[in-house]
């Protein structure tokens, strides 16, 4: 059974003065545990909308989304929130660290919404994750005082701190130079593999996309398989 199963997923948005905007037009996708999937596409092609649906943040207009065989549409909002926190880890293009918090406090944010035992151990778990991404010397540094590469490492540590089974990375190297971006992708691949998590990456960068075992292209709201790359 795939971790994520999408069939005939559509998503449309109402507009004020015209016909509804059809962003996704029947997407079929299966993501298995340990999968490495990259999705490429032009701006406005629906990549972010698809990622929102994969991350249980948005719901499709029509079609089926199942997580571990359970239809997401039948779950209540609170249940979806809990499932998202426990199953999915996000890595954003703009890092999206919370200003004012230290690196460790940012990494610990997801633990505030998890099981009690992990909440009480949040300082230790956050420190261990930061050590894992090579930032043990920056634990108490404010997020705003970190470089771009360091901020993305903190974001990766945050995405992994609850041991998610699915990591969704949206342009993870988009705000970094080529060299730093390469190191970040090496790290992301490594920690995702160590954690046994599936990794779905959305990117413009073909080199980043080529790291995945499956590269998909989104064109006019539909997914197309472009190649099969050995990881």
């Amino acid at each position: 059974m795939p971790l994520l199963h999408l069939r005939g997923v559509t998503r449309q948005f109402a507009t004020i003065d015209g016909p509804a905007l059809q962003i996704l037009k029947g997407v079929d996708l299966d993501v298995a545990a340990h999968d490495r999937v990259s999705i490429v596409g032009r701006s406005g092609s629906g990549k972010s909308t698809l990622l929102n649906i994969l991350g249980l943040i948005d719901q499709p207009t029509t079609g089926i989304v199942e997580l571990d065989g359970e239809p997401v549409a039948l779950m209540g909002g609170r249940m979806r929130d809990r499932l998202r926190g426990a199953t999915v880890g996000f890595v954003f293009q703009q890092f999206n660290l919370i200003e004012g918090l230290t690196a460790a406090e940012n990494v610990a944010v997801p633990l505030h919404y998890g099981a009690g035992r992990r909440y009480w151990q949040r300082h230790r778990l956050a420190s261990e994750m930061l050590e894992r991404v090579g930032l043990s010397h920056r634990i108490d540094t404010k997020a705003t005082n970190l470089s771009g590469g360091e901020q993305q490492r903190v974001a990766i540590a945050r995405a992994l701190v609850r041991s998610p089974r699915l990591i969704l990375a949206d342009e993870p190297t988009g705000a970094l130079d080529i060299e730093t971006g390469g190191r970040i992708m090496d790290l992301l691949d490594e920690v995702a593999a160590d954690a046994g998590a599936a990794l779905v990456t959305i990117t413009h960068d073909v080199a980043v996309a080529a790291r995945a075992s499956r590269m998909l292209r989104i064109v006019d709201g539909r997914l197309e398989q472009t190649s099969a790359v050995a990881a």
Partner: peptide, 15 residues
């Protein structure tokens, strides 16, 4: 943005 980040990592509306 902060609330969005928190929601993405599992915070419910009630929380």
């Amino acid at each position: 943005r902060e609330f969005g980040i928190r929601r993405a990592f599992g915070a419910s509306r009630g929380r």
